[in-house]
Amino acid sequence: MAYATLDDLKGRLDWTLDEDELRIAATALEDASDMAATYGREWAVDSAPRMVRTLVLKAASRYMRNPGGYTQSRAGDETLAWNDEAGENAGTVYFAREEQDLLAELAGRRPGLTSVPITAWGTNLRRPYRAGAKGPTGDGCVPVDYGGDPFPLYDDAESPW
């Protein structure tokens, strides 16, 4: 159920993969595809957005180029270092925070603000607004000064305000 093929990944790497590397690359593609479905949604392989394929290939090729997740390596005194940015993901197939956000957006899950209608406690909800209704008719609308359609606001039977 990989969103990209092994041939696609081979095209992004600048060396010929041996037998062990081919096995690791296939597993990396599966892992990246599983994570793409987790951060985004489970798309059908043939109808997934192209960007999902791109992100899967990017994560898998990042892993294949640097399976240990090193950010620094020295031959003398054998110094190795990892970057805190990757954190616990160093040495694994992972998506960066921006890539995770992009997958969520591709899946239609956009974080942000939304408006939610609220009413005061004990409000007597009347019939909803009807287009074309005029005046405080008990239908949940109040008149407007400019002569247009009434404004949908829960009115009072004694006073329009």
Rank of each mutant, 00 (worst) to 15 (best):
L153F: 03
G108R: 03
D46M: 09
P152H: 03
R126Q: 13
T123S: 11
P117T: 00
P150G: 12
S73P: 01
N83A: 13
L113W: 07
T16A: 09
W121T: 03
V52S: 01
S73L: 10
T71Y: 10
D18N: 12
P150K: 04
Q100M: 12
G147Y: 00
L106K: 04
N89E: 13
G69R: 02
R130D: 06
P128E: 06
E19Q: 08
S47H: 05
A37D: 15
A133D: 08
D7R: 15
L22C: 11
A37S: 15
R50Y: 15
P136F: 04
Y154S: 02
G140T: 04
A59M: 10
Y154P: 00
A28E: 03
E19N: 09
D20W: 11
Y63K: 07
P128F: 05
R130Q: 12
V144G: 03
A86P: 01
K58R: 15
P160S: 01
D7T: 15
E30V: 14
V93W: 01
Y94C: 05
M51P: 03
G69D: 05
A157R: 10
A37E: 14
L106P: 01
D139W: 05
L57Q: 01
P143F: 00
P128M: 13
D149F: 00
L80H: 10
L9Y: 14
D34C: 08
T79F: 03
D155A: 04
G148A: 13
T119P: 02
G138E: 07
D7G: 11
G132Q: 02
S73H: 04
N89F: 09
